[in-house]
Design a binder for these strands. Structure first.
Lengths: 199, 199, 199, 199
DNA sequence: TATGAATGAGCCTTCATTCAT
DNA sequence: CATGAATGAAGGCTCATTCAT
């Protein structure tokens, strides 16, 4: 087998791991299957990551990085909270349906990570939430802090849940339609809040 | 080890499997760990279920049965769609936070089942959705069929997502608060729809 | 492969381990080589001994038991210390040259045991020494306790050293001749002591 | 890591190997551990010695060279055989207790060498014996050649055996006392022989 | 029938070694 | 020349399963 530099191997192995994990779960993804999928020698996996655990953590980190958390804020203009959140949700789900394998792997690794070290997954969720809040700080929010956090978590749960449903049925159109519905729920809620705030 | 009739053993093993799976995942739940947890001989597992696969399917079926899908409809009275759905969602989440182990196991087994046989999990979701629609047929619905199905799926996704979050942080209060927020979203949406329908 | 009861398997594996260890050392004796030598499935090794370590400890115990430590004391008659010790030494060495493989294995395992747990090997030597002293209590000893202990240890060291030499050259005759010489040293020493004691 | 000339590296690696082998045995002394102990790059080990085998042989040769075989003969004076041999034995054991690590390594490598190539160790013992005989040629010997060779081998065996015991208990004082006892045995034997020769 | 005992297949990891500079 | 990087082969162990009663 041709010698391949470690940096390249790391990427190949992570990508291979993502595919195998999506297919077989984190525990089912044996080092051999991953190495084969990457067309890499088994030993290179341990050369690059020391052990399976580290590889999974790398996969977790990689996928966390890739997840689109932010909305495209039209600069300068004043935008409503509903618009921003809906757009975030929509973008996340669009990414999900286009990256079924990665989302599936993400879920499997997240569950694995929780088992492996409960702190880890919490950290990820927090990062996610922080990122969302950063976005919100840029718009006028008609709600007290505590309430807005709750809404953010509900939106996140909708992303998780809709993604989960998408794996099960694999129906892209339906998932996007349901995403639109979810946005409607969100906007209706915020519109009502704004109306209340005005009074 | 005392001889125990197969029927009893089946229950013990399923219950043990639920606990072990919640702790270690479906793949991490070895036959030995399950047998030990059930204080049953290892061989009895294969005697009762032939193989691990069948046991996991039995766990899946068992947990599917237990999930509370229906709302308590106040008989005779006319109730709004929003009320019914919100109550369903709330009940589901209350059950979730009170049955963390079972929900966790459910998620792990569902992911395993999808890998094992994609049809299976679909069937489960469908059953869930059908059951929900049966409830809805009992109330006035201000939405076309297609739209109402979409809302049902969004609600289901919120249950899944909120449960997922609950495992991660284990914060019961927060989860119930977020559940209430989710209900608000849902109700605001349906109120709006009703207002539109009136016009 | 035919099912074989664990008790039988244990013996087969220990015997096989002795041979492989004699040939390849304790570290070189891989679980696979031992299993093959015993014509046993690899898994049976772990079924019977849990892990390699335990097997080696069992080999150590087994060989310790087999070593002939005692002299054939002619009952009733008064025998000289020199006679008893010389006979012990001779018997030990006769056993050694007839059981080259076992002695070789014993040495390898003893070195391994010292690395694995220093206490172990000490215990073995102590047992050896105790056993020797028990024999000595049966005869008249013309030496103070401390001195007799030292002689015992020197005799033990001759056994070890002569055995070591035997492995290297494999010359049975020479080893037995050297053993006789060693006995002469021992007896000459004790004769001198007795003469001194008489005065 | 700084570039170091091969000659220096060889020494560093041999010294490191001695320490690691004493600690972990010849098989347990992995190339990596040795390289680390020498603070040398792993590849330099193979650059200097081609393979692990050669390094072990080098260690064996090195340690063989170091072993003190000769007695300090008081020039000009006539010295007894007993004195010479006892002094050799004593010096060897003094060196042993002061160089526990090297002796331990020596034993481990010798056993390894015997496994690797039985001729090797024989050669070493022969060299040892030859060297001893050279010393003996300088004094009056009251014994036939064959018998004196046997005594030499017994003395060598006592060195080996006492060293072995010393590793096990690590009791320096006791080892030296036992060495003195061994000398007494030897001297008593030779005195007797001399007396016989006189008659 | 229900169970203790035993095994084939496969897992993660580590080793000595080789490659490429 | 001397070294960092990479790999083929093997090692200890565990798993689901089957056997024998």
């Amino acid at each position: 087998m041709a010698y391949v530099p470690a940096a390249t191997r790391r990427e190949q192995l992570i990508e291979a791991a993502v595919r195998v994990i999506a297919r077989e779960g984190a525990d089912g993804a044996t080092t051999r299957k991953i190495a084969d999928e990457a067309k890499a020698p088994l030993a290179s996996l341990h050369y690059c990551f020391q052990n399976k655990e580290n590889l999974l953590l790398a996969v977790f980190a990689q996928l966390s990085d890739e997840m689109p958390l932010d909305a495209d804020l039209p600069d300068g203009e004043s935008t409503s909270l509903g618009y921003v959140m809906a757009q975030s949700l929509t973008r996340a789900m669009q990414w999900s349906v286009e990256n079924a394998v990665r989302i599936r792997a993400m879920i499997e690794v997240t569950l694995w990570a929780e088992r492996y070290d409960p702190e880890l997954a919490v950290g990820f969720y927090d990062g996610f939430a922080k990122s969302a809040e950063a976005v919100l700080r840029q718009v006028d929010v008609p709600l007290p802090d505590e309430e807005i956090h709750s809404v953010v978590r509900v939106v996140m749960s909708m992303v998780d849940g809709l993604s989960l449903q998408f794996f099960t049925d694999g129906d892209k159109k339906r998932t996007l339609r349901d995403t639109a519905t979810a946005c409607e729920l969100l906007k209706a809620f915020l519109r009502e809040k704004e109306r209340e705030a005005v009074q």
